[in-house]
Amino acid sequence: MAHETLDCRRLLCPMPVIRVQDRVAELQPGDELEAICTDPGVMQDIPAWCRINGHQVLEQKVEDDEYILRIRVGEPSP
């Protein structure tokens, strides 16, 4: 299972969501992706995007003004 990190610092929503979306499209179900962001909007938008598209948010936290979300890629829908 891949564990990847994605630097979304300084990007404003929805750019971090787009980056996550495009990266997730290249990953396999079960892989994990950690997105490091600076726009607080991601705390709403990335989980919403995950719910819609069937991915799981494993963790979301704030560290030194950075918003970090860990995602597990879900199964593709039929």
Binding site: C13, G41, Q44, D45, A48, W49, I52, N53
Partner: peptide, 17 residues
């Protein structure tokens, strides 16, 4: 609370976005 309205709509509708 901030939200992205396009994502919000998709969630209301149960569609992929």
């Amino acid at each position: 609370p901030k939200r992205n309205n396009a994502l919000w709509c998709a969630e209301q509708l149960g569609i992929k976005l």
